[in-house]
Computed example of a mutant assay.
Amino acid sequence: MKTVRVVMMMVCAIWLALGWGEAHAQATRTWVSGVGDDANPCSRTAPCKTFAGAISKTAAGGEINTLDPGGYGAVTITKSIRIVAESGVAGVLVSGTNGIVVAAAAADSVYLEGLVFDGVAAAGLNGILFNSGGSLVVYNCKIFGFSQWGILFTPTTPGKLLVSNSLVTNNGSSATFGGVKVFGRAGATTVSGVIDRSLLANNANGFLIDGTGGGGTAEVTVRDSVVTGNTGNGIATNSAGVVSSVVFVDRTTSSHNAGAGIAATGVAQAAAILASSSVQNNGTGLLATGGQIGSFKNNNISSNTTDGAPTVILPQN
C-alpha cells in the first residue's frame, strides 16, 4: 500500500512539473502585457504577450485584459470571449492576414473594446472577420489600413452586430471593399445590427448591407454617425432576390462621398429608410436603382452634384 502511494505521488509530481495540470486549467480572466511571455499562465503577475497566447488559457465566457500598451497580434476566436483594453493602446497590427477572426458557435458572443487594428497600409486583409457566432460587439475601437474591409460580418447562423463609438477609416483597396459590410450567408435567417456614434471615413465604401449571400432578412441601423469622404458610396444596400436588406439611417450625416450618399440597388427588397439625417455634397445624394429609398420628410438632401429623390414618402406618426 505504501509503495502504491509513493508511485502515485511521483506521478503527480511529474504531471505538475510538466505543466499538464495547468494546461487544462483555464481562468475566467487573463492578462497580456507588452513585456509578457506566452509561456506564462497569463495571470496579472505573470501575463502573456499576445492575445493568441492568452485565449487558450481563458475559459469560455471569460475576459482578456491588457496591462499596458503593446502590440498583441492576430487571434482566432472560437468561443464566447471579451477582449478589453483600458490601459492604453492595444494594437492588432497585421500584414497579409486578418486581424481578429471570429469562428465561434451559434450561441457564442464576442466583445472587443479599446483595440486599434492596423492593416499596415493595405497589407492586411480584414480588420475583423466574423465568420460564425451569435453576436459581435465592437466598442471604442479604431480600424484602419486594411485592403478589404475594416469589419466584415458574414455569419452562417442568425447573428447580431453592434459597432459603437468607433473609427473605421482608410480601408478598401478597390471599389468592392471598404469600411463595414454585413453579408448574411446561407443559414443566417436573420441578421440585425446597429452602428452607433461612429465615423466611417475615407474608405473605398462606407457601409454596405449585402443581401446576395443566400441568407435571410438583414436589418441594420446607422444612428448618430458620420459617413464621409469615401471614394464609392457612403451608405448602401442591395439585394438580388426575395431577401430583405434594409438599412435605417437615423440622425446621421452622409457627406462628401464620391458615389452616392445613400444607395439602394438590385430589387425592391433592398431598402434605405431615412429619418432626421443629412445627405450633402456627394456625387449623388439618393440613388435608387431597383431598390427603394424611403424618407420621413425630415431630412436634409442638398448640395449634391445630383440630389436625387426618395422613392417613397413615409408618414410621421
Results as ranks from 00 to 15, higher is better:
50 T>H: 04
25 A>D: 05
11 V>W: 09
38 D>F: 08
47 P>M: 07
18 L>D: 01
41 P>G: 04
31 W>I: 07
39 A>I: 05
44 R>N: 08
42 C>W: 08
9 M>K: 14
30 T>P: 08
20 W>A: 02
14 I>F: 13
46 A>W: 06
26 Q>N: 08
20 W>M: 07
47 P>K: 07
12 C>N: 09
28 T>Y: 04
38 D>N: 14
32 V>M: 05
32 V>T: 10
31 W>Q: 10
47 P>Y: 03
22 E>K: 02
22 E>D: 13
23 A>E: 01
13 A>R: 10
43 S>A: 07
26 Q>S: 10
14 I>D: 06
27 A>S: 15
45 T>Y: 10
16 L>C: 11
23 A>Y: 01
37 D>E: 09
28 T>D: 06
18 L>Y: 01
46 A>Q: 14
42 C>I: 02
26 Q>W: 04
15 W>V: 03
22 E>N: 12
51 F>H: 09
23 A>F: 02
43 S>N: 03
23 A>T: 00
45 T>E: 13
25 A>Q: 06
28 T>R: 03
34 G>L: 12
34 G>D: 10
13 A>H: 08
14 I>L: 15
36 G>D: 08
25 A>Y: 11
44 R>K: 15
8 M>S: 13
21 G>A: 11
25 A>I: 02
51 F>Y: 15
45 T>N: 12
46 A>I: 01
11 V>R: 08
45 T>M: 10
40 N>K: 07
49 K>T: 11
13 A>I: 12
27 A>I: 06
7 V>K: 12
48 C>R: 05
34 G>A: 12
11 V>Y: 09
38 D>Q: 07
42 C>T: 03
46 A>S: 14
48 C>S: 09
8 M>V: 12
43 S>I: 00
18 L>W: 01
21 G>P: 06
23 A>K: 05
15 W>S: 01
31 W>T: 00
29 R>L: 11
30 T>C: 05
9 M>F: 14
35 V>C: 01
50 T>C: 04
37 D>G: 09
26 Q>E: 12
24 H>I: 14
32 V>S: 02
9 M>N: 13
37 D>V: 05
13 A>G: 12
42 C>G: 00
32 V>G: 00
20 W>I: 03
11 V>K: 07
30 T>W: 07
15 W>D: 06
36 G>I: 04
49 K>M: 11
35 V>E: 09
10 M>G: 14
41 P>A: 04
19 G>A: 02
40 N>Q: 15
32 V>Q: 06
26 Q>V: 03
36 G>Y: 06
9 M>C: 12
32 V>L: 07
47 P>H: 04
19 G>L: 00
19 G>W: 00
13 A>D: 06
16 L>E: 03
19 G>Y: 00
8 M>Q: 14
35 V>K: 14
27 A>E: 12
24 H>S: 13
19 G>V: 00
39 A>V: 07
10 M>R: 13
7 V>W: 13
25 A>N: 11
